[in-house]
Structures are given as C-alpha cells and as structure tokens.
Design a protein around this nucleic acid. Sequence first.
DNA 1: ATTTTCATTACGGTTTCCCGTAAGGAATAC
DNA 2: GTATTCCTTACGGGAAACCGTAATGAAAAT
Lengths: 222, 222
Amino acid sequence: MFKKVIIAEDFDSINLAVMQVLSELGVTEIHHAKYCDDAQLKIKKAVLDNEPFDLLISDLSFRADHRKVQLISGDDLIKWVREVQPDLKIIVHSVEDKTFHIKSLFENQNIDGFVIKGRRSIQELKTAIKNLFQTNEKFISPEMEHLLQDKTINEIDNFDIELIKQLSLGVPQDKMDIKFKELGITPSSKSTIEKRISKLKDYFKANNTVHLISIAKDLGIA
Amino acid sequence: MFKKVIIAEDFDSINLAVMQVLSELGVTEIHHAKYCDDAQLKIKKAVLDNEPFDLLISDLSFRADHRKVQLISGDDLIKWVREVQPDLKIIVHSVEDKTFHIKSLFENQNIDGFVIKGRRSIQELKTAIKNLFQTNEKFISPEMEHLLQDKTINEIDNFDIELIKQLSLGVPQDKMDIKFKELGITPSSKSTIEKRISKLKDYFKANNTVHLISIAKDLGIA
DNA sequence: ATTTTCATTACGGTTTCCCGTAAGGAATAC
DNA sequence: GTATTCCTTACGGGAAACCGTAATGAAAAT
C-alpha cells in the first residue's frame, strides 16, 4: 500500500473520514492540510528531504477566509505539483460535477482518479486507492463516467471560454474586440466575436446572450 | 441533551462525522437519512408513534441520482417539517454561503441554527447544539454573521427575483411584459420592467444585462 | 501553380435594448 | 378638496446587438 499520503481538504468532517479510510487501508504516514498553501509546503519539504509523498488526495474548492493564500484552489495546487513532482499520484475528491472541469483534469493534469463526494464516496475512495496502488489503474466515480462521453466540451475551445468569461464580467460584445486586443487574443474582430457568440448560442440553444451566460454559469464555464 | 436526533445529509463522510459529534454530546438516539424523502418518512413515523424527534440537522443540497424523489432539497424538507411538526428544532448544516438563501431560512422557516460546512464545522456544530439545548439560543457560524447585516437582500423583492429568473431563462426584456402578463404578475409594462432592470443594474453595479445575470447567478438568485 | 477550403474581417440593415422625459393614476399628506 | 408623492405607463432618440452577405487572406489539396 502507499506509505506516505497527504490530504488537501478544508472541511474538517471530510478530512476526518478520509483519514479513517487511509488508516483502514494500512497507510502508515498520513498528513493533511486545510489550505492548499499548507499542502504545498509539506509536499515541497518532503521532496527536499528526499522523502516524497506517494499520493495526494485533493479537494478542488477551498473556502476563502481571512487568511491570504497563494494557491486558492485544488487546481492551482495540482498544477504546481505537476511542476515539482510530476510522478506524484493524485486522486481528486470533490463535489465538482462539471464535465468540462473534470475532463480537463484528466487530460491536462494527468490526474489518477476522480472520486465525487456523495453518498458512496467512502467506498469509492477505497476502491480508487486500492486499484491505483495495485494495478496503476485510473478511477472515476461510476456516476460521472458517462459524462466524459459528452462531446459538448470538445467543441468549445479556450477562445470560447475566454469570450464567455469576459461577457460574464460585463464586457459588452461591442467592446470585446478592444478587450481581446488588450489580452493579446486573436482573432479579435467584432465580426468574429459576433460569430462565435452566435455559434455558442446555437450550441447551447440559448435565446440570447443573457440566456447563454446563464447556461454557461450553470455548466461551470466562467 | 436532546434525545432523539435525525441527520439529513447525503455525503457519507460528513454523515459519519456528524453522528460522531452527536454521540460525543450524549445523544442517545441518532438517526440519519441520505435522501430527504427518507428523512421525511422517519419524521412522519416518529410523529405518528408519538415519539417525535427533538432535533433535525439538515443539509440543503442533495445530489440528484437515479432515484426519483419528492423532496429534492433541504429547503423542501424544512418547509414540509414546519407543516407537520412546527416545534421541531432545526439546524442547517450546509456549504451554502448565499446571504439571500440563509436569511430567508431564518426569517421564513424559523430555523434554529446555521452551521457552515468548513474548517471548523465540527466545533461549531457542537456549540450550536449545546447552546440550542441549554438556552434555546439561535446559532450562526461566525463567518456568516456579518453577511446578515448586508442590506442588499432586503431591497430586492419577489418581483425583482422573478425578473432575474425569467431573464436567465432566456426571455428577452422586450417580451417580458407578455411573459409577466401570462404569469399574472403586476406591474407588467415594458417601461416598468425596463426601469426595474435598470435599478438592479445600478444596485449590483452591473455594466449590462448580461453582467447582471452573471452576478445574480453568483449570488444564488435565479 | 492553381484551386478549394476555411477562418477572419468588413459592412449595412433590422431589431432589441437603453435612457431620459413626461403623462396618467392611486395613495397619502396637508 | 387640493397638493404631494410615488408608482406605473408611454414614447422617442440613440446605442448596442443581431443577421445576412461578401471580401480578404492563409493554409491545404490537387
């Protein structure tokens, strides 16, 4: 079994439960952090000490509070991990159910598992860890598996996402060309932007731009 | 201490932690349900058996799955409880941080406490339960307290909310008068609707309607 | 080298949205 | 009973968004 594991999770109750799972599986050295920054510190130190972690179990969203932090989300943490310790196994444990987001984690960050917080997460977590250790097999919660088949996500690219994001921040379509030039994004003509928005409206069956942004927000884009 | 307590919570890990808290506090009869419908059933039976629950600790959002359910959210459950057992003490335990929502629970459903899921929820839950039992005092997570001071919420009414909702569903401003007439909402003139939207944009410092809906979605209105 | 394809850009006409001004009407104040 | 206030409604000009068509240019195919 994995020897040295770290949990990044802000909810104390879930932290407790996950530690219990690890302990039952026979993990001997269990660390945990309630902030991504703390997890970062521990992972960094472990690497320097030549006693790196074998597995990271990380949440994605961390509630912001009084404390100033560098890494505000699990995504930030994972991205950083991939730079300093690319071979660290990572299982994401989150409530996140946005296809777009999960898919990107597997494809861009090469995570090793995704367990959705829910009615069976304890059991699923156990399975995920065991399978990963024994056969190096990636795990995804059964409930989520079918979502990855969804093709919607493949057909909208970073340009579209940036567009949606800027719209949702209040940049009017009319001024979007200027904004995009500022951001150094091409193409940036009014015409292209108009066409893309129109394409997105088709895609998401939105009646108008307001509707589009509402849908995009529900999907977790923006 | 409370004798008979029920937990409505879908995450198994949190369920576990809350049960542990109750047990430490000396609660003798602890029940739990992963679906609102199950909680409803148990509460109903307890009332009929003349052995009603003393306290309900309920989550707000329950993940939808294969199972068909009547009550889809904690809000539904609480609303129902207030009809059949108005004196049941209720502590809400949720990640919800939308002022609007929490405020409405205290004002309209007369809940007895709100503990936000977070880094200190176990401790807060203990305090909430103890205080409630000993002094009948309402509890709200310190982190959330200041939010209730926020006046924003008081100044937007049901008309505004319906307006935002319809906009986010894709009804164009121009056709909103027709929609409102259909829904039997007055006033309904184009002009008034225009003015209200404009007021809302002022209020939320939105550049345009798209921006407004984006903000409203973030606040959990709509 | 030429053609085809495709993405980008440009532009004009129409609709929708935005904003100020003002008229009508009901409730409250004087 | 008249005045004041506040909400609702109406309208008109200007801005933004929408939609179709077409020109431009670069990459790919032949």
